[in-house]
Design a protein around this nucleic acid. Structure first.
Lengths: 230, 230
DNA sequence: CTCACTTTGTGCTCTCGTTCACAAGCGCTT
DNA sequence: AAGCGCTTGTGAACGAGAGCACAAAGTGAG
């Protein structure tokens, strides 16, 4: 009896699905706050901005948590999705780099409420080290490894200038961090087992600019659009 | 002679390719600063962290700008990619919501250097309106439409709380904004012709948590590793 | 001029993800 | 208890993207 087919377990959740689970979780939270106790895939999909078939398939990877003819129990589904994402525990996080963005993240409450706890702030600017930001005292860069090991930090957030991002990343990884969220505009090279995700607002704007430009050019020269495409 | 095959024109650039062009552009910029004048697809791909075949295919959608046996001219390619992304002009941007994140973005220099100009800041908190941030005076929310229309803003950045994000978005769109970058943790509903991209750090962290959790659970049960696929 | 070498551009295959469409399953009503 | 209407879960078709592998096209040496 092969189990290759069955991926209901922990094994085969597609990456694309994982990326959407947090969105579902957020939508479920909102619905819960509104007092909704049961929701159909159609309604939840609308709240999350996706196709309902896709939503059902996504949820089916976690197991059969819905009731046919009824829908999904909001609280129960919140629990199951949270568990799948590993949010039933609090993940300690360190932020390296306390420029404007680092400050903003340190003060942002959105993390704490969702299974994350910012446990340490690190910077190498003497003017910033020792100051208190968001209830934490900024540590010097020398103490990076010590902080990571002592607090058992698994997730590091990099908000440094691009020039030092790779160096900081290497040190985080060497100290035991397994996942990195990179806000610096640079490509990070990491070992196989380390997960990196990046956030780059400049890139997002450039993608928007591309679409804007296309709109403009087709508006201005409808006749020549196919020839010049300017 | 059919040209259905030929998508070298402006028409058919895959979305996945568009999303990578800014990364290539950044890598090219770095290479240019280092004095490199010609680069092979292999080298550029390494700098951008992608497969070289993918890079070549991506660039081929823009046209044949390389020289076989030699590589790509850095400056020329920078120009071509910039042009394709619509970065040869400066796009005026408005930021709505000046909390910690809005402040950080307003002070971030990375945009300005890449074809974007933050032209206005808007908020509805009387304590913030009228103050100067990053060289601009914060405008009251009432003036949102006026600001957008006067400055010809095409791109809006939303850094408000989730509760008002949809409302702000609607007003931006009504005033003529065609592209929105949303930092608020909410799903925005917009008309067909409007482009939305979202940045949500909380979601990124949750995706990382998922992978961390998987690592941890397979560490705990090393004997089951081959079953779980650690 | 020819040949050897380098690197681009792309046809093709394979994998991953999306969407459709419907059978299976559940609750409610009669 | 039987039937009806609603909603889930999923097989299957479809589409987009990744990557291999190689022909085409350029350079430079002899």
């Amino acid at each position: 009896m092969r189990d290759g087919q069955r991926r209901t377990g922990r094994q085969g959740i597609p990456e694309a699905t994982v990326a959407r689970l947090p969105i579902y979780l957020r939508a479920l939270g909102t619905l819960g706050d509104e007092g909704v106790s049961t929701v159909s895939s159609e309604a939840l999909a609308a709240a999350a901005g996706v196709n309902s078939a896709k939503l059902r398939k996504d949820l089916s990877y976690l197991g059969s948590y819905g009731t046919r003819g009824v829908g999904y129990d909001v609280d129960y589904l919140v629990y199951q999705v949270s568990r799948e994402l590993g949010l039933t525990q609090d993940w300690p996080v360190v932020i390296v780099g306390l420029g404007h963005l680092g400050h903003a993240l340190a003060n942002y409450g959105g993390f704490t409420t969702r299974g994350f706890a910012i446990r340490a702030l690190v910077d190498n600017d003497p003017a910033v080290v020792g100051t208190e930001v968001g209830g934490l005292v900024v540590q010097p860069l020398d103490r990076l490894e010590q902080v990571v090991e002592t607090l058992g930090v698994a997730i590091g957030v990099i908000t440094t200038p691009a020039a030092v991002a790779q160096d900081v990343c290497d040190r985080l990884v060497a100290a035991g961090v397994g996942s990195v969220l990179n806000f610096a505009p640079s490509v990070l090279v990491v070992p196989e087992h380390v997960e990196v995700r990046k956030v780059d607002m400049s890139i997002e704007l450039q993608i928007l600019a591309f679409h804007e430009q296309r709109k403009v050019s087709s508006d201005l020269t409808p006749d020549l659009a196919k020839v010049v495409g300017k």
